[in-house]
Computed example of a mutant assay.
Amino acid sequence: MKKLILSLTLCAVLFTACKEDEGSAMGVLSLDISGLGDLGDDYVYEGWIIVDGSPVSTGVFSVNDAGVLDQTRFEVDEAILASATTFVLSIEPEMDSDPAPSATKILGGDFSGDAATVMISHTAALGTSFTEVGGSYILKTPTTTTDSDDLSGVWFLDPATGTPALINLPDLTSKTGWVYEGWAVIDGQPVSTGRFNMDTGADQSSAFSGPESGPGFPGEDFITNAPSGLTFPTDLTDGGVIVLSIEPEPDNSLNPFELKPLRGAVPSGLAPGTLQAMENIAASTYASGTVSR
């Protein structure tokens, strides 16, 4: 009798386990994404599927400096995966106690059948492609009292009209998790001109400027506090490059992020105060790809 009871109990346990396994069948979510950058040691990418309006994590991964994902296939509950309408990719702290996605969402895409094309212009991500953005800059050092160092400052303003020289730049004030940042590449080393949310008003930094007040526009004079390996004042017409990037906030890197709408090499012989246009390189610098289930 004891053997019979034991056998019946074992069968019941096995049957229950089988039923549980049947109820939690797993599907596979595959990522084929290019253009993502290395986030360093403190941050990771995390995928999310939107099911009935709520985010469900699909797992985290890292990207090396060659842009290769360390994982591209993720097991997800099959029924939940089949019900997903949207995929979103966010940037998260590596040690993250918050179960919800961060505000820094870089890619999004809606499923059509078993695949979703993901891009930054999706409404769940940055909401625009930035391909319509235009921009110019001038070389000038308004924070010093001399004209002899005018080739050592860059400002995103039009001196003829006294207006911003960044055109069609979306306002990131409402996009928590992202911010614009200007850069001057000096002797191959990127140096920040400051962060800002929109093209009007000063940026958040004057780390290298002189003692005088600067104009109420994004920009920087490279006069003091030169980073290691550089000497200020400098001459930006000697191989300098001006860049506008879109940066995650917070950010653990001293270099520009992969999202760069505008870039322009400083022409040799560019006169101080001359408005110089930049090239829109948005289409060639942004991550995109396909997510399949």
Rank of each mutant, 00 (worst) to 15 (best):
L157A: 11
G216E: 14
M198R: 14
S209Q: 14
T117I: 13
W155Q: 01
S205C: 05
E212H: 08
S206K: 09
G219R: 05
A226I: 00
T173G: 07
T237M: 09
G135H: 04
P142D: 08
S148N: 11
D187H: 09
F196T: 02
P159A: 04
D96I: 00
G182N: 10
D221N: 03
T117A: 14
N225G: 06
K175V: 12
N168H: 08
T141G: 06
G201V: 03
M198E: 06
T131F: 12
A226F: 00
S192M: 03
D221E: 08
T193Y: 10
F217D: 10
G219W: 09
S97D: 10
W178S: 08
D158P: 00
A160K: 03
T145A: 15
F130N: 03
T143S: 15
T234D: 09
E212Q: 15
G210W: 04
L236V: 01
N168R: 02
P164I: 13
A115T: 15
L139S: 07
T224D: 13
D187C: 10
G109R: 02
G162I: 04
A202Y: 09
T176K: 14
T193D: 04
Y180K: 06
G108Q: 07
K105M: 12
S192L: 04
V185R: 07
V191W: 05
S228D: 14
K140A: 13
D171G: 00
A207M: 12
T144S: 10
A165V: 03
L151M: 02
S121Y: 04
T163H: 01
L230R: 01
D149Y: 12
I223D: 08
T144R: 04
G109P: 00
F222T: 03
P233M: 14
E220Q: 15
G135E: 07
P227F: 09
L169W: 00
H122R: 07
T104Y: 11
G229R: 04
D147A: 15
G135I: 05
V154L: 13
V179H: 11
G219Y: 08
I223R: 10
P190Y: 09
G153L: 08
L107F: 06
L230T: 01
S152G: 14
A184S: 06
N197P: 00
T146D: 10
D110H: 13
N197F: 15
K105F: 08
L236E: 10
H122E: 11
Y137R: 07
P142E: 07
N225K: 02
D187P: 01
S174P: 04
W183M: 06
G162P: 01
F208A: 00
T104C: 15
T176L: 15
I223E: 10
A226N: 02
F232Y: 12
G216Y: 06
T145Q: 06
P218G: 14
P99H: 12
S102D: 02
S152F: 07
L230P: 00
D114K: 10
R195C: 08
F196M: 05
F156K: 01
S174Q: 11
G134C: 02
N168S: 14
T144N: 06
T234I: 05
T117C: 08
T131Y: 08
A207Q: 08
T224A: 13
P215Y: 04
